[in-house]
C-alpha cells in the first residue's frame, strides 16, 4: 500500500461520496419534511438511469438532452408520488413505509416489462482521463464529484437563505408550528419531493454510465443512502453530506488494502460501531 494507491483510493472515495450524497440528501429531505422513509427512492435513481438510456441508445438523441429529461422526469415523478400516494398517508409513517416497499416492486416490474431484464449500458460524453501527477481519474467520475458537491452546495444555500428553504427547516422542526405561520405543508412537501427525486435522477443519469443498468440497481444505492443518513443524523442535510463522505471514503479506501468485497462489510461495521456510541448519528439533534 503506497501513497499513490491511497490517494487514488481517496479520489475513488470522493466519487462514491458524490454519488451517495445525491441519493441520501433526497431521502433525508423527504424524511424530514414528510416524515416518511421513502424506500422506493432507489427506484427513482434507477428510472433516472433508464430514461437516459432510452434517449441515448434507443432514440439515439444526445446524452445531454436525455439527462435533462431524466432529471425533470424524476422530479415530476416525485411530485406525483407525493400527491397520489404519500399525502393520504401523512401522519401514518408505518403505512407509508409499507406503501413505499410496494412501490419498489411496482417500479422494478414496470421497468422490467418495458425494457426487459438484460443489463443495459450507455456511454456518457465525458470521455478521457484527468491526470494529476501520477493519479488518474476518469472525467465521468470527476463530473460526479463536481455535480454532487455543487448541487448539494446549492441546496444548502437554498435552505439557508431562501424563504421556502427556511420554511422546510421549520416544518422539519415543528410541523404544527410551521402551519401556524401560514406555511403550506402540501406545497413544500411537493417541492421537497421534486428536489429530492431530481437529485436521485442526476445520480442515476451520471452513475448509470459507469455501470450496467438493471431494474434492481436501486437496491444497493438505497442501502448506502440509508446508512449515510443514519450515520449523519436523521433529517439533517449536513449530516447526510458528512455521512456520505465517510461511507464514500470507506468504499474508496478499503479496496486499496483488501478486496472491494470487504468495503461494504467494513463500511457497515463502522456505521454500527459509531451508532453504538452516538445513536443519534454524527450530526443529529437530541
Amino acid at each position: 500500500m503506497d501513497e499513490i494507491n491511497v490517494l487514488q483510493g481517496v479520489l475513488n472515495g470522493l466519487t462514491c461520496a458524490g454519488w451517495y450524497v445525491l441519493v441520501a440528501v433526497g431521502l433525508s429531505l423527504v424524511l424530514s419534511i414528510m416524515n416518511i422513509v421513502q424506500l422506493s427512492h432507489g427506484e427513482i435513481y434507477m428510472i433516472g438511469a433508464y430514461v437516459v438510456y432510452y434517449f441515448c441508445v434507443n432514440l439515439g438523441i444526445s446524452f445531454y438532452l436525455g439527462f435533462v429529461i431524466a432529471v425533470l422526469a424524476s422530479g415530476l415523478l416525485g411530485i406525483v408520488l407525493e400527491r397520489v400516494f404519500f399525502r393520504p398517508f401523512r401522519g401514518k409513517p408505518d403505512q407509508a413505509l409499507v406503501l413505499s416497499i410496494g412501490l419498489i416492486l411496482v417500479f422494478q416490474n414496470i421497468v422490467l416489462a418495458i425494457a426487459g431484464g438484460t443489463p443495459k449500458s450507455y456511454r456518457s460524453p465525458f470521455e478521457g482521463v484527468v491526470k494529476i501527477g501520477s493519479l488518474a481519474l476518469s472525467t465521468e467520475r470527476l463530473v460526479i464529484i463536481i455535480a454532487g458537491f455543487v448541487l448539494i452546495g446549492a441546496l444548502f444555500l437554498f435552505i439557508r437563505f431562501a424563504k421556502n428553504g427556511q420554511a422546510m427547516l421549520a416544518i422539519s422542526q415543528d410541523r404544527e408550528g410551521a402551519a401556524l405561520q401560514g406555511i403550506n405543508i402540501n406545497r413544500l412537501s411537493a417541492i421537497a419531493m421534486f428536489v429530492g427525486c431530481a437529485l436521485a435522477g442526476v445520480a442515476g443519469g451520471l452513475v448509470g454510465a459507469l455501470f450496467t443498468l438493471t431494474p434492481t440497481m436501486g437496491a444497493t444505492v438505497l442501502m448506502k443512502g440509508i446508512a449515510v443518513i443514519i450515520l449523519g443524523g436523521l433529517g439533517s442535510i449536513s449530516g447526510a453530506v458528512l455521512g456520505g463522505l465517510i461511507i464514500g471514503l470507506i468504499d474508496g479506501l478499503v479496496p486499496v488494502v483488501t478486496s472491494s468485497y470487504m468495503a461494504s462489510l467494513i463500511g457497515f461495521a463502522i456505521v454500527i460501531l459509531i451508532l453504538l456510541f452516538r445513536p443519534r448519528g454524527l450530526w443529529g439533534h437530541e
Binding site: Q166, A170, Q173, D174, E176, G177, A178, L180, Q181, G182
Partner: peptide, 30 residues
C-alpha cells in the same frame, strides 16, 4: 393566517434548532 389570525399555541411550537431571528422572520412568512 393571511386573513389576519395568528396563534400562540399551548406548547409554543417554536423551531428549536433555529435562532431567535429566524423564528421571528418565519412569523412573517406570508
Amino acid at each position: 393566517v393571511k386573513a389576519g389570525i395568528a396563534c400562540v399555541p399551548e406548547s409554543r411550537k417554536l423551531f428549536p434548532h433555529m435562532n431567535v431571528l429566524s423564528n421571528l422572520k418565519l412569523g412573517a412568512y406570508l
